[in-house]
Computed example of a mutant assay.
Amino acid sequence: MTDQTINLSPELYSYLLSVSLRENPVLGELRKEMKSHPVGRMQICPEQGQFMALLLKLMGARKVLEIGVFTGYSSTIMALALPDDGKLIGCDSCKADTDIARKYWRKAGVEDKIELFLAPALDTLNDLIEQGEKETFDFCFIDADKSNYLNYYEKCLWLVRRGGLMAIDNVLWYGRVADKNIDDKRTNKIREFNQFLKEDDRIDLSLIPIGDGLTLARKK
């Protein structure tokens, strides 16, 4: 037993993966490609992806919204977790990165489940709301520009159903949020966002120390 979350040494992290990770070979191939990508570290870690896929299956999720597709690891693993008639809507504005994502969607056989909108995410979210998509999503994953986290969150509150779940990535921001000597704009935005969610009575809340910190917010 322990009364505090433990830190993972490299050896313990390797052990964790060795006894728990069940990674689709296509996802392993994508992770390997990302090692040479200039900002490959932006990709979620495999155990986080597996955790989110498990959440989708537990919820019986059929409709997912992703804000920030990048090269497609999270969208691929979530689409694999959806039923055959499930749907994932992805929002991103970088064609070069999402072209990589499309390649792996095809390899994983999930391309037909995914609809990608290449545009500023807030524009896409507003369009979805105007098109009558309020409270139709089971799960929303936010992993995009940190300055807009609160804006994305508020839009997702409109779009996710009651009892649905929002997952927000990078909320521990490589530990910078706890360092009082760090005072840059993005770090402060995440601090403000985390504090806002703690006080928001529209949701049930849990911050999971997985990857770079993953907040789960269930809409009441």
Rank of each mutant, 00 (worst) to 15 (best):
S14I: 07
Y149K: 02
L157R: 08
L165E: 01
Y104L: 08
L116K: 00
Q48T: 12
P10S: 04
S93I: 15
R176A: 11
L207T: 07
D179P: 05
D183Q: 13
L54E: 03
K32L: 14
Y174L: 14
W158H: 12
L80P: 10
A217S: 14
T187K: 05
K219R: 12
L118C: 13
M1L: 05
R191Y: 06
L197V: 15
G90W: 00
F193S: 01
N7G: 13
I100P: 01
L128F: 11
S14P: 03
E192M: 14
E29H: 08
E111W: 03
E33A: 10
E154A: 08
K189P: 00
K155R: 12
S75P: 01
E23L: 09
A96R: 14
V110N: 03
L21V: 06
Y152G: 00
A217N: 12
D3N: 15
T71D: 05
V26Q: 03
G49Q: 05
D204C: 14
Q4R: 10
I203P: 04
V64D: 03
G132N: 08
R41Q: 15
M59G: 08
K87R: 14
D123L: 01
G68R: 02
I6G: 02
V19W: 02
R202V: 13
L165D: 00
L88M: 08
T124G: 10
I168G: 05
R186S: 08
L55E: 01
V19H: 04
K189T: 06
K63H: 09
G163T: 07
L116G: 00
E29V: 05
D212M: 12
L159K: 01
N194R: 02
M42S: 06
T124N: 10
E115N: 11
K185S: 07
G163W: 06
T76D: 01
D200H: 07
N170V: 09
N194D: 04
I114M: 07
K198V: 13
I208E: 01
L118P: 03
F139S: 03
E199N: 15
F196S: 12
L118V: 14
D145C: 01
